[in-house]
Write a protein that binds this DNA or RNA. Structure first.
Lengths: 132, 132
DNA sequence: TTCGTCTTACGAAATTATTCGTAGACAATT
DNA sequence: AATTGTCTACGAATAATTTCGTAAGACGAA
C-alpha cells in the first residue's frame, strides 16, 4: 500500500490535476483540449503524462471503455496543504506568517477576500485562547 | 544584461540560498558544513552546485583569494515573492486568500504572529479605501 | 624536498521530467 | 473490404538536476 503523502507533483502534473479537480473525471482528450488553450502540446505528450501520473498513483482511471477516464486520486485541499507546508519550511524557514504577508503583498486581494481572511484569523484566535 | 526575475531556484539551490541569506558571504566549505548537518552530501557536490548557481547568476563570488567567497545575488524577499506568486497562480488558481488560509491552517502560528498579520491586513484595508 | 591537505575545475554518470514518433487495436465510414 | 480516425502502449530523444570521481595547483609541516 502506497500513500502519496510525500509526493510533489511537478508543474506539468499540477496543470493536469487542476483541470481534473475543476472538471471532474475526464478522458485524455478532454484534458488535452483544455491544456492546448494555454500552451503548445502534442496529444501523446498529454497521454504519456497522464499515464505516468497513473503509475505514480496521482490519478486513477476507469479502463472499461476504449477511452479511459481519469480522475484525480489526491484531493486538491490536501495537495495544496502539502505544497504550502513545504514552502513554509523551505522558503520561509518555518514562518507561516511570513508567507501570509508575502502572499497578501503579492496579489491585490479585493475587499471580500480580506474580510474572509479576517474572519478566519479571528476564528483561530478564539480557538487558541480557549485551548490555553 | 540578464535579470533573473523569472528564475526558479531548485530545492537544492534554495537550501544554499537560505544559508547564504542567513550567514552572509561564505566559502563553499562553510556552506557545506551547514548543509551536512541536515543531509548527506559530498563536498564536491556542494562546490559544483554553487559553481552552477554562479553561472546562473544566482550567486556572485569574490575569487581574489584561493577560497572563493560566495554571496547570494538575488534578494530573499524578491525570491520569496516570486515563489509565492507562482504558487498562487499554479496551485491556487490566482486566489491569494486561499493560499493564506491554507498557510494559517497548516502551521500553528503563535499569538504575536497573528497580531502581526492582523496589523498588516488593516494596513492594506486602509490603503485600499483611500485609493478608491 | 616530499607528503598530506585544501582548494578549484572539469567531465561524466545517474536520475527525473518532458516531449514526441510510431505501432497496433478497434470502430465507423466509404 | 479498404480507408480513415481515434485510442493506448511503448520506446526513445532531450533536457535539467544532482551526484561524485579525478586532476591540478597552492600551501604548510615534517
Amino acid at each position: 500500500m502506497q500513500t502519496n503523502d510525500h509526493l510533489k507533483p511537478t508543474d506539468s502534473e499540477l496543470e493536469i490535476l487542476n483541470i481534473l479537480w475543476e472538471k471532474g473525471p475526464c478522458t485524455v482528450r478532454e484534458v488535452h483540449e483544455v491544456l492546448e488553450k494555454s500552451k503548445e502540446a502534442g496529444y501523446t505528450t498529454t497521454l504519456k503524462l497522464m499515464q505516468i501520473m497513473h503509475d505514480k498513483n496521482l490519478l486513477k482511471r476507469d479502463a472499461t471503455n476504449k477511452s479511459h477516464i481519469y480522475t484525480a486520486n489526491i484531493s486538491q485541499e490536501k495537495t495544496q496543504g502539502q505544497l504550502v507546508k513545504r514552502m513554509i519550511e523551505n522558503v520561509f524557514n518555518g514562518s507561516a506568517s511570513q508567507l501570509v504577508m508575502q502572499a497578501l503583498g503579492q496579489h491585490k486581494s479585493n475587499n471580500d477576500e480580506l474580510q474572509e481572511i479576517k474572519r478566519y484569523l479571528e476564528e483561530i484566535e478564539k480557538r487558541s485562547s480557549t485551548n490555553k
